[in-house]
Simulated scan of single mutants.
Amino acid sequence: MKAISIRQPWAWLIVNGYKDIENRTWKTSYRGKLLIHASGKLDFNAQDMKEYRSIMASEAGIDIPEDLPLGGIVGMVDLVDCTMEPDDPEGWHEPGCYGFVLRNPVALPFRPMPGRLNLFEVEEADQ
Score class of each variant (00 low, 15 high):
2 K>D: 00
7 R>M: 06
61 G>I: 02
21 I>C: 00
61 G>D: 00
88 D>I: 08
72 G>K: 10
109 P>S: 12
33 K>S: 14
73 I>M: 07
33 K>R: 14
29 S>V: 12
41 K>F: 12
115 G>Q: 03
98 Y>N: 11
56 M>H: 06
95 P>N: 15
45 N>C: 11
81 D>L: 11
68 L>D: 04
68 L>I: 03
70 L>I: 15
61 G>N: 00
49 M>N: 00
89 P>A: 02
11 A>D: 07
7 R>G: 00
39 S>F: 04
80 V>M: 01
126 D>Q: 15
118 N>F: 14
22 E>V: 11
5 S>N: 01
75 G>P: 06
74 V>N: 01
115 G>E: 00
73 I>T: 06
31 R>D: 05
124 E>R: 10
14 I>T: 11
27 K>P: 10
102 L>R: 06
63 D>K: 13
79 L>K: 05
95 P>T: 13
118 N>A: 15
36 I>P: 01
115 G>L: 04
28 T>Y: 06
2 K>H: 05
58 S>D: 13
23 N>H: 02
77 V>I: 12
70 L>S: 14
37 H>D: 02
101 V>S: 15
124 E>Q: 10
121 E>A: 11
56 M>V: 07
87 D>A: 13
71 G>I: 04
2 K>R: 10
7 R>Q: 14
101 V>E: 15
118 N>G: 12
103 R>H: 05
88 D>W: 10
69 P>S: 12
47 Q>G: 14
104 N>R: 13
81 D>S: 15
4 I>F: 11
44 F>P: 03
92 W>H: 15
22 E>G: 09
59 E>C: 12
14 I>Q: 11
68 L>H: 04
119 L>R: 07
50 K>I: 04
110 F>H: 08
78 D>R: 13
106 V>P: 00
19 K>C: 03
31 R>P: 02
30 Y>C: 09
96 G>D: 08
15 V>W: 07
99 G>T: 09
82 C>F: 02
63 D>F: 14
86 P>Y: 06
71 G>W: 03
3 A>E: 01
52 Y>I: 08
40 G>M: 10
20 D>V: 05
109 P>M: 09
5 S>M: 00
91 G>D: 05
82 C>D: 00
25 T>K: 10
43 D>T: 09
51 E>N: 14
66 E>V: 09
5 S>C: 02
